[in-house]
């Protein structure tokens, strides 16, 4: 299993998510598709982190603290994305509730209050 395999999976998931975002009209489905896109990005970030060894390790020298931090960046990014995505989901669900209460619909195409 190489980096390319993982990136391929990530790309497929991202494309599925994008398709969902552009085609689904139900806001809940839209939100779920959005989550798929997030997760594709998380997979890609972790994959890069996993398959890129610290610079010092590659040439057999001493691994410095900075090199360790650089190697862990992808993982840290993944944790951040998950946290932000969770917060966003909570917020988005609250918005959807509010939307349903006021307009009795969750169809994205029915909501165009922000047009000119």
């Amino acid at each position: 299993m190489t980096l390319e395999h993982v990136l391929l999976v990530s790309g497929i998931i991202f494309a599925i998510g994008l398709y969902g975002v552009l085609s689904r009209r139900n806001t809940i489905s839209l939100l779920m598709s959005l989550e798929l896109m997030f997760n594709a990005v998380v997979i890609a970030a972790v994959a890069f982190s996993r398959f890129t060894p610290p610079a010092g390790l590659a040439d057999g020298g001493i691994v410095t603290a900075n090199e360790v931090r650089a190697a862990l960046t992808g993982h840290v990014l993944a944790v951040f994305i998950i946290a932000v995505a969770a917060a966003e989901s909570a917020l988005a669900l609250a918005l959807i509730f509010a939307l349903y209460r006021t307009k009795e619909t969750v169809e994205i195409t029915d909501v165009a209050e922000m047009r000119r």
Binding site: L18, V21, L22, R25, I108, T109, A112, M114, R115, R116
Partner: peptide, 17 residues
Amino acid sequence: LANVQSGQTQTYAAIMA
């Protein structure tokens, strides 16, 4: 130019993509 701003979120997203 104002016609571009349709209020349709998915149109925006498609254009962005």
